[in-house]
Design a protein around this nucleic acid. Structure first.
Lengths: 203, 203
DNA sequence: CTGACTTATGGCACACTGTGACAGAAGGGT
DNA sequence: ACCCTTCTGTCACAGTGTGCCATAAGTCAG
C-alpha cells in the first residue's frame, strides 16, 4: 500500500474520530462540517470527498456490517434454510466486532452513545439498513428460487433477521462494554430463533 | 369548523397534491420547494409552515397510520397477546385504507409509486417507522409489565410487527389497485402469524 | 533527480433546505 | 366598527452539498 493510500486512510479516520468527539461534546446538530474539517486541518470541500454527507459519518459502520453479512451469506451451504443462514451472518458481524482493535471498539461505543442521543440518526441508520435489506432479499429469493419482486416470504425472512440485529443493537440502553453489548446481541439472536416455527422459512 | 381551518386544510392538501404530481413528473430530487409552493401560489416560507420539511410530504401518511395503530392498540383487551393485538392494529390500518375517499386512495397510490422510484425515500419512510416502533415498544412493554429499556422481547415483538407492515407495503412491486395492495398486505399479515411459535410473545 | 503523469486538495461560486424575526393582511368575535 | 388572534410574505441568514478549475502533492519512468 503506497503512501498515498495510507495518508487517505489516516485522514478518513481522523475526520471520523474528530467528528465523533465533537458530536459527543456539543451534539450532532450543532456540529458543523466546517468544525469537523477544521479539527483535521482540511477544507470542508475535502470532507465531502471522504464522506458523501454528514450523516454518512454515522452510517459508515453499516457499510462494513453489510459487507460481512453478504460475504457470510454467500459462503454458507446453499441448502441451508435462509433464516438460519442469516442468523449465521449476524453472528459473523458479532465476531468481527469482538475481534476489532481497541480503536475500532472505541469508535463503535461512541457511535452507540451518539445514536442513543439522536433519534433522528437512529432513523438514518435504520434507513441504511433498509437498503441492505433489499439487497439481502434479492439474495435470499435467489436461494429460494423465487422471484424477488413478488415472493413475500423472502422479504419477510430478511426483515425479521434485520429486526433482530437492530433490536440487539439498540436495546441495551445503558452504556456497557463491547462484550456486554455483543453478549446481549447474541441473546437476541437466540430469542428470535426460538420464536419462529421450525421450517417457517422453507415453505 | 371555521373558514380559517377549512382554508388551511385546503392549502395543505393542495400542497400535497401539487408535490406528488411534480415528484411523479420530474422526480423527487429535482423538484424544489419553490416549485411546489409556486404551484399553489404560496410563498416557500409558508410551505415550511405546513410541512416541516420536503421529506415530511412523503411521510405524512405514517403519522396517520401510527395514530390508528396506537388507538387500536389501546382499545384491545389488555390480556390479549401483544403480537396478536399488533396484528389487529395492522388490520385496522388496512380497513382505514379500504374506507378512504377516492382522493385519498389516489394520493396513496401516487405515493407508493414515488417511493418505489426513490430508494432514499423508502429509507426515510422506514426511519419514521422506527420512531413509531419505539413508541409502540413502550406501550407493549407496559402491557407485558416489563421495563421498556431492557426487555428485548417487547422490542422484538414490535419490530416483527412493523416488518410485516413494511413488507406488505413494499413487496407488491407492480402497480396495482388499492384493493390488490390491501389484499396483498393481509396475506403478509397471515404469513407472519403462521410463521411464529404459538405463545412466543407471552414468555 | 528530473520531468511527465496521475490524483488529491483548496477555493470559489452556486443551488437548495430550513429557520428566525418582523410587518402587514385576513379571519373571528364583540 | 373595533380589537385580537392567527396566518402570510419578505428578508436575512446558517448550513449542506456539488461542479469547476487551478494548484499542490504522490507516483513512476528514465
Amino acid at each position: 500500500m503506497g503512501l498515498r493510500e495510507r495518508k487517505k486512510e489516516k485522514t478518513r479516520l481522523a475526520l471520523l474520530d474528530a467528528a465523533l468527539d465533537l458530536f459527543l461534546e456539543q451534539g450532532y446538530e450543532s456540529t458543523t462540517v466546517e468544525q469537523i474539517a477544521g479539527a483535521v486541518d482540511v477544507s470542508p470541500r475535502t470532507f465531502f470527498r471522504y464522506f458523501t454527507s454528514k450523516d454518512h459519518l454515522v452510517l459508515w459502520f453499516h457499510d462494513h456490517g453489510e459487507e460481512i453479512m453478504l460475504e457470510t451469506l454467500e459462503s454458507r451451504p446453499p441448502d441451508e434454510p435462509p433464516f438460519t443462514a442469516l442468523m449465521h451472518a449476524l453472528r459473523a458481524v458479532l465476531s468481527d466486532m469482538q475481534g476489532s482493535t481497541p480503536e475500532e471498539s472505541a469508535r463503535f461505543l461512541k457511535l452507540r452513545r451518539i445514536l442513543e442521543e439522536n433519534p433522528r440518526l437512529i432513523g438514518q441508520s435504520v434507513a441504511r439498513g433498509a437498503q441492505t435489506e433489499h439487497r439481502l432479499a434479492e439474495l435470499v429469493a435467489g436461494l429460494r428460487g423465487a422471484d424477488p419482486d413478488t415472493d413475500q416470504l423472502s422479504h419477510l425472512i430478511v426483515a425479521f433477521a434485520m429486526s433482530t440485529l437492530r433490536v440487539g443493537f439498540e436495546c441495551p440502553r445503558r452504556d456497557g462494554t463491547l462484550v456486554e453489548i455483543t453478549d446481549r446481541m447474541s441473546e437476541t439472536i437466540e430469542l428470535a430463533e426460538r420464536s419462529l416455527q421450525p421450517g417457517w422459512d422453507l415453505r
